[in-house]
Design a protein around this nucleic acid. Structure first.
Lengths: 196, 196
DNA sequence: CATGGTGATTAACCCAAGTTAATTCCATCC
DNA sequence: GGATGGAATTAACTTGGGTTAATCACCATG
C-alpha cells in the first residue's frame, strides 16, 4: 500500500525502520460527504491525514451555533491538540464536505517515532512552528480586520477553496452569519459611486 | 552571570557545552516603562526572554489603531515568528508596560543549538506545540465568543494580569475599543433585575 | 490648594451585524 | 414539466460596538 503519510515522512528524512513501523500501523477510512471523522466530545487520540476530498473542523456552541475552525483539503494533517496534549475529549468535530479518504495513526505511534528518530522530531518541530505561524496570522485577522477585510483576506489566501465550500461555511469560518456575508458581498459588488 | 534562559535550557536537559555556548552569546537589556524592545518594521532576528517586568506585543494598523497581540509577563519568550521563518521585518512592536529586564539571543544561535542538541530540539518542539495550542484557544475565543464572554474568559485565564494592565490595553487585546469594554463592565455590574 | 495629566466612564449618535422570516435561484429527481 | 430541497439573497427590525467628545476620579507635583 502506498501511503501519503509515509511518503511525507520519507521526504523529511525519516529512517526506513521508522517508515515501516508507521506503515504497519496506518489505517485508512473512506467517508461520504456528511459523514463525521469524529464528533465534538469524542476521544480521538489520532493523527489524521486527508488523502483526498475536503473536510471541515468546527465548534458547536452550547446554544447550537456552528463555527468553522478550519478547512481540510487533501494533504492536510488534522487532529485535536488538546486531546493529544491534555488527554481529554475533542472540543470540535470533523465532518466531510466531499467524499474523503483519510489515513489514521494513533498519536502514541507518532510520538514514539519522534522519540526515536531525530529526522522525525525535526519534522515535528517544523510542523508545529508552521502551525503556530498560521494560527498567528488567523489571530491577526480576527484582532485587526473588519469582517469585510477578513473575507477579502480569505479569498486572497484561499483562491481554490472559495468555490469548493458554501458561502454559509465561509461565513462561519469568518465568525459572522451567512446573512452578514451575503450583505458584505453585495456591498463589494456595488459600483463605487464616486459621483452621480 | 546567572541567566534565566540557560536555567530553562538546563532543566530541558541541554548539554553543558550547549549551555555554555548560549551563555556566551546572551545579551541583556534594561528598559524603562514606555521603551520599545523593537518597533513594527524593524528587523529583529532575536529570541527574547523577559526576566522581569511586563511588556506587550502590539500591531499598529495603517490608520493608526493599536491592537494588543499578547502580554509578556516575566518568564515569557518572545520574538517574531515571521522575522525568523520568512526572514522579513517584524509585523508588530514590543513596548514595556513596566520596567523590564530582558535576555537577548540571535535566532541563528538557537537554531544551531537545535541542530546539535536533541534535548534542545525536543524543547523547541514542545515549545511550539504549546504555542500552537495557546493560539488555537485564542482563535476559539475570537471565533466563538462575544466580546463580553471574551472579557470574562480573559479574566479567568489571566487573573493576575488583569490589574497590572490598563483597561484600554485589555480592550485592545480583546479586539474592541476602550469605550466598548467600559460599557461591558457596566452591564456586568448591573443587578440581574430578575424582578422589580 | 490649585493644576495638570492620565485612566475610566458616560452620553449621543451612527452604522454594521444578529435575528427571523420570506423569497429567489437552481439543480435534481420522479 | 412540475415538485422538492438546498443555497443564497433580501427585507425588516433589534442590538451592540464604533466614534467623538465631554465628564469624572484619582494622583502626583508645584
Amino acid at each position: 500500500m502506498n501511503f501519503l503519510m509515509t511518503r511525507i515522512f520519507a521526504e523529511a528524512g525519516v529512517s526506513e525502520e521508522g517508515l515501516e513501523k508507521i506503515a504497519s500501523i496506518i489505517r485508512t477510512r473512506s467517508l461520504e460527504q456528511g459523514e463525521y471523522l469524529f464528533r465534538q466530545g469524542d476521544t480521538a487520540p489520532n493523527l489524521y491525514l486527508i488523502r483526498n476530498g475536503l473536510a471541515k473542523m468546527s465548534y458547536i456552541t452550547s446554544d447550537g451555533k456552528e463555527f468553522v475552525k478550519s478547512f481540510l483539503p487533501e494533504g492536510s494533517f488534522a487532529g485535536s491538540l488538546i486531546a493529544q496534549m491534555e488527554n481529554c475529549e475533542t472540543t470540535f468535530s470533523i465532518v466531510c464536505l466531499e467524499p474523503v479518504e483519510v489515513e489514521i495513526v494513533p498519536f502514541r505511534a507518532v510520538q514514539k517515532l519522534f522519540e526515536r528518530d531525530p529526522a522525525a522530531l525535526d519534522f515535528g518541530f517544523r510542523f508545529f512552528q508552521a502551525l503556530a505561524l498560521k494560527k498567528e496570522k488567523r489571530e491577526y485577522s480576527f484582532l485587526c480586520l473588519a469582517p469585510e477585510e477578513r473575507y477579502q483576506w480569505f479569498l486572497k489566501e484561499n483562491p481554490t477553496l472559495a468555490d469548493r465550500v458554501t458561502k454559509a461555511d465561509i461565513a462561519r469560518y469568518l465568525g459572522i452569519t451567512p446573512v452578514a456575508l451575503s450583505r458584505i458581498r453585495r456591498r463589494m459588488k456595488e459600483p463605487v459611486n464616486s459621483m452621480t
